[in-house]
Each structure stands twice: as C-alpha cells, then as structure tokens.
Amino acid sequence: MVRHPLVQLLLLSGLLVAAFGARAEPDVHSITPLDIHILRPASVVPATDGPHLVFEALISNFSPVPMTLSSVRLGTAAQPAALARFEDAALATLLSRPGRPPGDGQPPVTVIQGNTFAAALFDLPLGDDAPVADLRLALTIAPFKPDLPDTTLNTAVAVPVDRTPPVIVSAPVAGTGWVAFNGLSATSIHRTTLMVVDGQARVPERYAIDFMKLTGDGREFRGDQARNESWPGYGQAVLAVADGVIESVRDGFPDNVPGRPPAQKVTLDTIAGNQVILRLKGGAYAAYAHLIPGSIPVRPGQAVRQGQVLGRLGNSGQSDAPHLHFQVGDRGHIAATDGLPFVFDAFTLLGVVADTAAADAGGAWTASQVPQPRRRQLPAENAVIGF
C-alpha cells in the first residue's frame, strides 16, 4: 500500500478548506502551498515625498500545481488591507521574477508555476496615521481545482519591522543641481536588482542613488555627449559622509566613453569600477563607485574626517555616463551586502526630473517649485537637490 502524508493528500485533493482563511481567529491555519518569506525586516524611511515602507517578500510555490495570485493585502490582524491591496495591473507591477525576463510564451507574472517563486517589492507611501505595528501580509489565490470555491485564502504572515533609525550621513558631493537618479522607488533598477552573493539573496542597492549633476541650464551634458568632460559632474570631489575608516579601495580601472559599453569587462569585482568603501561608526558601510582612475588619495585602514576628499567622480565600471553611485550597507562590499536605509542631515530640494528620457536626450530641466530646506530625509527617485 502506498501511504501519503496528510498534507500531500490534502494538496492533491484540493481540499484546502478555504473557509479557514476567511475566519479571523488567530488559531485558524491554512495549508495553501505558498511560502511567504520576508527577505529583510521592513523599514520606514523618511523621504522627500513622505515616509516610505520598504521591504521584499519571496513567494514560493511548494506544490507542482501552478498558483495564480488574485490579490495581495498588507495591513494588520484587525484591518487586513489597511495599508494596501494589490490586484490586476497593480499586482503585476508589484511582482517580479528574478532570473526570468518577460517575453513571448511566458505566463503572466501573477502565475507562480509549480516549484518556482516570485518576488514582491514593497515601497509604500505612508500617511501620518498609517498603522506600522503588527503588520500582516496575505495572499488570495484563484481556484486551481474545479471543486474549490471562488477564492482560496492563504493565512497572513507577520512582517517584522526594523525600528533602527536610518543611518544619518552628510553630503557625498558639494554644490547644487544633483539628480537622485534611480533613487528610492519600487521600480528603479537599484530596487529591482536582487543578487545572490555567497549563497544569500540580498538587495545591495535597496536605497542606492546615482548622483548626476546638471548644468546651469538644467541639462545632463553640454557639447559632445561622448566626452566625459561634457558632463558637469565629471571630476567633482567625492566626500566622506561621516568620520570613519577606509575599509577598502579599488583603483586602476579605465573610464568609459559615455553611451558606449564598459571599457572593462563587468564582473563582481569590476562592476563598481574605481571605488571607496568607508566604515562608519556603528557598523554601517558607505560605498562610492565609478570614480576616476588615479583620483583616490586614501588607503585602507586610514582614518578620515567628514567632508574629506575620497576621490573624483568618474565613469568607470558598469556606468554609461559620469555619475556617483552611493549606497549604505551592512557589510564592506559593494555587492556582498544588504542595503540599509540612510538619510542626509541637510539639503535643499529643488524639484523632480519628471521626464528622464527627455533629460537623457539633452532636454533641459526647469525647476517648478520654490527651493525647500530638508533635514534627515532621503531623496526620492529623480529628485533634484543641492548640498
């Protein structure tokens, strides 16, 4: 006689007892075969457009049967969708499939095939009275057996919240007209890059910013776009954001030609180009990438003071135009780290670049608001600021 574990029998028969998921009592359980793993505790980050709740969830299908997500809810035990409910297009935007680029013949991202997973990237604006205690994340899946009810509910899982305040840093560059390209958002290339390094899934660039300086008339470059010197940020001093000790330095990689493939083959060691990693008090690490070769005056183990020059902004590594990639993480490596939230002690918000494609093509950005002093905030994606 072939004996099956109880859970396997229930899965194969489709008897998931959907009514369990509809009850609110905490002792009710669900055996829906979707595992919800919170990659890192959620953080509340004060940003130029208001506070953001940031975290990621990996949703894995432990059965051989495809599961179609119909909704994702974030709230509390008392209010299951108090913060957000994602359905249809919003749900498709929330989800991604690391390692599986979309294309013809691919199932919708809301369909989690058997023995596969999807990533849900949360970056939610929070109101002043939004509940951020006792957070719960829950899923609704469509029926996958003819005899099941219209929906099958998955028991909500707790979302831990990291109450550690963001790391406070000073300006990594000086002057005005700096754009926070690929900054804080749910869809920037930094936010959507999940990396498995040393056997651990991480989001090194979770809060990273690509700082690019605009010309006086609001353009990314002036003159020949293919010359690094045409970009106003090129050669600008890169500054220590706090007192600390130099953790590591990489130098000797050539600058790229703007708009062309990298001059150096991109690997885990070369992706940041010429770089400096600064160990801050408290255990966090500030990383500076894409510096000009030969411009780094500091060495590993050297103590530096806030505002000290660490190098010059360049275009080395995986970079297609001069900019400073800046991030803060929990380890002293550009990729083998998990991104930590940080805020700048003081800056001026000048506006937002609403049309990045036009800016990349040489269009001029014009401020549409009065400059606003900001303290202890993180610039949101494409914000234009001055230090």
Results as ranks from 00 to 15, higher is better:
Leu340Tyr: 05
Ala321Thr: 12
Gln200Asp: 14
Ala346Ile: 07
Ala359Val: 05
Ala84Ser: 09
Asp251Glu: 07
Tyr285Thr: 02
Thr76Leu: 09
Gly105Ala: 14
Val159Tyr: 01
Thr32Phe: 12
Glu87Met: 10
Ala201Cys: 09
His290Arg: 13
Leu91Gly: 01
Leu194Ile: 08
Val249Lys: 02
Val266Ala: 10
Gln308Pro: 10
Thr155Lys: 15
Gly273Met: 06
Pro146Thr: 09
Ala174Asp: 15
Gly199Asp: 14
Asp355Phe: 02
Asp217Ile: 08
Val45Cys: 07
Gly183Ile: 03
Leu194Ser: 08
Ala186Tyr: 01
Phe144His: 12
Ile112Pro: 00
Pro232Ala: 13
Ala201Gly: 13
Pro232Arg: 09
Phe211Met: 06
Val111Trp: 04
Leu268Pro: 09
Leu53Asn: 07
Ser30Cys: 06
Pro149Cys: 10
Ala346Tyr: 04
Asn382Trp: 05
Pro107Gly: 07
Asp27Glu: 14
Pro322Arg: 03
Gly127Pro: 09
Lys281Pro: 03
Val298His: 08
Phe347Ser: 06
Ser295Gln: 05
Tyr234Met: 12
Gln306Tyr: 01
Gly386Ile: 07
Gly14His: 03
Lys145Ala: 15
Arg97Cys: 03
Ser43Gln: 12
Asn154His: 13
Leu268Arg: 11
Asn256Thr: 07
Asp129Ile: 10
Gly307Ala: 00
Ala242Leu: 01
Asp251Trp: 01
Ile296Ser: 08
Val203Gln: 13
Asp251Asn: 13
Leu153Lys: 05
Ile31Asp: 13
Thr267Asn: 06
Asp27Pro: 01
Gln113Met: 10
Gly216Lys: 09
Ala18Trp: 11
Pro172Ser: 02
Lys281Phe: 08
Gln264Arg: 15
Ala201Ile: 12
Glu25Val: 05
Ile385Asn: 05
Gln308Ser: 15
Leu280Asp: 05
Gln113Thr: 10
Leu15Gly: 05
Ile31Met: 11
Leu126Thr: 04
Gly199Arg: 10
Ala237Tyr: 00
Ala263Glu: 12
Thr187Val: 08
Gly244Cys: 02
